[in-house]
Design a protein around this nucleic acid. Structure first.
Lengths: 212, 212
DNA sequence: CAAAGGATTGAACACACGTTTAGCCTCCTA
DNA sequence: TAGGAGGCTAAACGTGTGTTCAATCCTTTG
């Protein structure tokens, strides 16, 4: 697709440049002159069109996260990983942008997370009703947990990817993690349920202590 | 313990103030004058003692992450979570600092992550040899996975904690997530191994495609 | 006690960067 | 064709902030 300057309006060029910069460097480190440069315009024009750096951010947020919310509605949260794995260069930018937005706790990011958790929860409930997923008492917490790990996998801080021998995040990293993840989701990690029982007992004990 | 000014040397006061600010606001957003103010000294003195903001950061990194590495050697990686759960106010600062450092991919953070992964891997191997942990083929990847989820749980972006009904990260959040996590680690998520088999087949297929 | 060396400070400097402003060019329109 | 509106630019402004500097205070030591 149109990778850069072409038939895009100046506003759109600025917005796309800003998205790229925000995703790569974060909001703080990005300066408007750099954004203007990649967009091929002057710094003043950015302000002229968007009013301020902060307003520019919120426009970018709505644009990127709106796309992601729409996509997750179509495909389901869990498939976000799969989709990303199949053609990473297309989604890499958006995923990085999303991670940054979540880290900085932006309003649009909050809406996206709510969507992902809700989506995930309904999928889990459906799977439990159908019998393909084991029953859990606290489905909400489980949903949060799965979204959390999915996002964490996509985030994958550089030191962790390095611990696997890769020096940058990419589909190879995901491929390396895919099988252990599935094994964990299928058989668990512990050989018996002693740790679980111990944890249950410990939680009940601390619960009683809090009640008295 | 000594919570602030007292018998500490000025250098230590500055360092502790910097750690607090870096943890709360991140490296970029904290300015030296604020650090100097909470340390009760002038801005110039910070430079006088540490040379530059960047050098100050590396000193703080070594201090905090050195403590964490030492503690993980004593207690084991997995217990970091438990320790944090028991007295959060003491570790909260250090954990937040660590997360920030990992996000910004600082050298000391890399060393910490390496330690955590190695520690985790040896624990997993020991558990497998002993029979308390199920055998996995790719133990290294499994270790990375467990560290990743542990860190992600400690990070717990605000939108995710809000999805659980809490409006700030704390021990209650961890308590809520503890049981589902243990259940996941004990029984897995899927009721049968169909998804695992499907993933294995898909990975092999894409592997062959890459080989030809 | 006097000299010295480090700790400490307040003011000044330098630079980066968001934003403002005045003006230019272009295109639409009456 | 004249006028105006808006896209667009270059330069300037102001501020926040890392850093430097000269001066002062304190402590130690010969």
């Amino acid at each position: 697709m149109c990778s850069a300057h072409s038939d895009l309006t100046a506003q759109a060029k600025i917005r796309d440049a800003a998205i790229a910069h925000f995703a790569r460097d974060g909001f703080q480190k990005t300066n408007l002159r750099a954004v203007a440069a990649t967009a091929g315009v002057s710094a003043g024009l950015v302000i002229h069109h968007f009013g301020s750096k902060e307003k520019l951010r919120s426009v970018c947020d709505d644009h990127v996260l709106g796309v992601l919310v729409r996509r997750s509605h179509e495909a389901g949260t869990a498939d976000l990983l799969r989709e990303f794995m199949s053609n990473p260069e297309e989604y890499h930018l958006h995923v990085r942008y999303m991670v940054r937005a979540i880290e900085e706790d932006t309003p649009a990011a909050g809406r996206l997370v709510d969507t992902l958790v809700a989506e995930s929860e309904s999928i889990l409930r459906a799977g439990m009703a159908e019998g393909s997923i084991r029953p859990y008492s606290d489905v909400r917490a489980l949903a949060v947990l799965t979204v959390l790990t999915s996002l964490a996998t996509l985030t994958m801080a550089p030191p962790l990817t390095r611990a696997l021998g890769f020096d940058g995040f990419g589909p190879e990293v995901l491929r390396r993690l895919a099988l252990p993840t599935l094994e964990l989701y299928t058989h668990g990690l512990y050989a018996d349920d002693a740790p679980l029982k111990a944890a249950r007992a410990a939680l009940e004990a601390s619960q009683e202590k809090r009640d008295e």
